[in-house]
Every structure is written in structure tokens, then in C-alpha cells.
């Protein structure tokens, strides 16, 4: 029996330089270097800072991944890389490095979609994907609902945010509340001791009129502004702002909309499996609420462990391995980084 393909994956679409190595569905290495600390004082990811950090981190990440996996780069059967969507300059560092690897190793190159990779990564933890499934991808850059029929070629977008990404809303509200960047983990922590019903913040795009046009879309900008108004009004009145309660109420509003729409998508498409991925999938309230409501509705929920939810190279390698296994055509050396690559394009 021939062994499963050994695939190396590179991810540089935002601030994480990720190099992962998998053998088929088995994770061998997941080296991630983050430039997050360099962005913290700016309150968000600065593209040029991220791109510079990718260049410096790339070869050390390749070395670390091959050491962790206990394989030589020469042994790799294929190279996969995120070719979009993401920050243009950041993507390009990974794509150029992946091409150099493919050239230097004489192995095929697969340029893959970042969002599809967020779905494919779950195979490393929970085995083959139930397909079709609904995927809810929520991070600092994305908030999407997808119908995944075949993660290597057929992914249909059902909806996405029309303004801020969910993770972005967490960052902005954290800043309002005087919590550090990135906001997600800090809001999550503060919310644990807060009252989610302390204030009822608006649920974006859930009114009957909005649902007609934006049934599976999200909007978090209005929610962020509502929190800002509430906090500022309190401050003007000279009242203290109960950070834990506001964090909990805000988080409740975000999770409520995410889970409600994800479940609606499952029902509408007659799908009984929901996969949640992206950095916001690490949120404890989102996980708990999804499990509770999906359990009641008879929908199975799969959420990879937090380290696989945030951006990493292993997810790219995981999708690459499925491409190889399915005999998909590799990309050419003229592969483009595409910052606005549509999710319908799983591979270039």
C-alpha cells in the first residue's frame, strides 16, 4: 500500500506566518510565527509590518516545521499555499516562497483558498468531513456562511458580513472597553463574569425586512456603534461602565446572530452538520451556544481546537493533501496572489 501524500502548506494571508506539514489527514507539524505583538499598539494589523515579518519568519518556520515533523523537505510530495483572499502584500510573500519550494524540490504546487482551508483543517482533528456541510467561518477578516459540497472544488457562499468582520467587532469593542488587542480573548474572559442580559444590544440583519435581502448575511458595524453609544452615554452621565456586563451583552449579540443564521442555513439546505472555523471559533460562548442550540435542533457541530481555528499552515496543507488525494490539477508557477479571491474558487 502506498503511503498517503506528504504535503507542506504555507499561510501568510494576514499576520501569521504558518508552515504546516501533514501526511494525508494526519497533522505532523504546525509552525506558526505571529507578528501580532508588532501590531498591538496600532490597534489592528498593519499590512506592511505583516509583510516584512513574513519575509523574516519564512525560512525559520520552514526549518521548524520540517524538524517538528521529522521529515526532510526533499520528502515532501506537494506544496500548498494560500493564494487568497487576504492582504495582497502578505499573500505574495507566501506564494513566492511556495513557488521557490516547488521549483527547488521539483514538486507540484497548489494555490488554495484561505476559507476552504479553514474548513479542510477540521479533517486533521475530526476525520473526513461530512459533506455537504454548512461552514460558519468567523475571524478578524471574514464572517461567512458557506455550503460545502466538496471542499476541494464545490463551495457555495450563502452569506457574509456586509461591513465589519465578527473578529473586527470584538477588537473595536475591546478598545472601547479599555481591553487589549486582539480583543477576542479579552472580551471572552471579561464576559465570563458579566451578565449577558445586562443590556440587549441589536442583532444585525435579523428583522423580517432585512432577512428578505440578507438572510445569511451579517452586519456588526451597527452593533459596535450601539455599544459605543451606550458606553459614551454612561461616561457622560459620570456613571461607571460595567466592563464585564457590556462585554457579555455584546458577545451575546454576536453569538446569537452567528448561531441563529448558521442554524437557519442548515435547515434551509437540509444539512445536519455545522462546522465552525476561524479565530472567533475559539470564543467560549460561541462554542457553548452552538452546541446547545444545534443539539436541540439535531445538528452536529464540529469545531477544531483553537490552535487550528486561527490562521496556520496546517490547514493549507490539509486542503492540499485532499487536492492531491482527489487528483486535482496543480497550479502553474505563474500562480497569482489574489487578495479578493472568491470562495467559489477553491484552487487556482
Amino acid at each position: 500500500m502506498t503511503s498517503e501524500p506528504l504535503v507542506l502548506g504555507i499561510e501568510t494571508s494576514c499576520d501569521e506566518t504558518g508552515v504546516g506539514i501533514v501526511r494525508g489527514g494526519t497533522l505532523l507539524a504546525d509552525a506558526v510565527a505571529s507578528s501580532l505583538d508588532e501590531h498591538a499598539r496600532f490597534g489592528g494589523v498593519v499590512p506592511e509590518v505583516a509583510s516584512r515579518a513574513h519575509l523574516e519568519a519564512m525560512v525559520p518556520a520552514l526549518e521548524r516545521a520540517s524538524r517538528e515533523a521529522g521529515v526532510r523537505l526533499d520528502d515532501v510530495d506537494a506544496v500548498a499555499v494560500t493564494s487568497g483572499p487576504g492582504l495582497a502584500g502578505a499573500l505574495l510573500v507566501g506564494v513566492a516562497s511556495a513557488k521557490a519550494l516547488a521549483l527547488g524540490l521539483g514538486k507540484p504546487l497548489f494555490g488554495v483558498n484561505h476559507l476552504a482551508a479553514h474548513v479542510a483543517v477540521d479533517t486533521l482533528e475530526h476525520g473526513p468531513l461530512p459533506q455537504p456541510c454548512i461552514a460558519l467561518l468567523v475571524s478578524g477578516g471574514h464572517s461567512s456562511l458557506l455550503l460545502v459540497e466538496d471542499v476541494t472544488q464545490t463551495v457555495t457562499p450563502l452569506g457574509a458580513t456586509i461591513d465589519d468582520a465578527a473578529g473586527e467587532a470584538f477588537d473595536k469593542v475591546a478598545r472601547l472597553l479599555g481591553l487589549p488587542f486582539p480583543g477576542g480573548p479579552y472580551v471572552d474572559r471579561a464576559a465570563r463574569t458579566g451578565d449577558p442580559a445586562y443590556v440587549v444590544f441589536p442583532r444585525g440583519l435579523t428583522s423580517p425586512r432585512d432577512l428578505e435581502r440578507h438572510r445569511f448575511d451579517f452586519s456588526f458595524s451597527g452593533l459596535k456603534t450601539a455599544v459605543a453609544r451606550w458606553v459614551e452615554t454612561r461616561e457622560r452621565e459620570g456613571q461607571p461602565v460595567p466592563v464585564d456586563d457590556v462585554a457579555a451583552a455584546f458577545q451575546e449579540a454576536v453569538c446569537d446572530v452567528l448561531v441563529r443564521k448558521a442554524l437557519d442555513a442548515c435547515r434551509t439546505h437540509g444539512v445536519n452538520d455545522l462546522l465552525i472555523g476561524g479565530g472567533v471559533a475559539a470564543n467560549s460562548r460561541l462554542r457553548a451556544m452552538a452546541e446547545e442550540r444545534c443539539g436541540a435542533a439535531g445538528v452536529r457541530v464540529r469545531v477544531p481546537r483553537p490552535k487550528l481555528c486561527t490562521d496556520n499552515g496546517a490547514m493549507v496543507a490539509a486542503l492540499g493533501a485532499q487536492m492531491v488525494a482527489r487528483g486535482r490539477t496543480p497550479s502553474g508557477l505563474d500562480l497569482l496572489a489574489d487578495s479578493s479571491m472568491p470562495v467559489t474558487v477553491v484552487a487556482r
Partner: peptide, 19 residues
Amino acid sequence: PFTGLRVGLVTARTLGHVL
């Protein structure tokens, strides 16, 4: 210009490493 410059450098470093 940074973006193009980095393409050359990351290509050189990666090729140098793998070869």
C-alpha cells in the same frame, strides 16, 4: 518598492534553504 523586492528576497532565501 517593497512588495516586488520581497518577492525576490523570499524566493532567494527559500531556494537557498531548500537547495
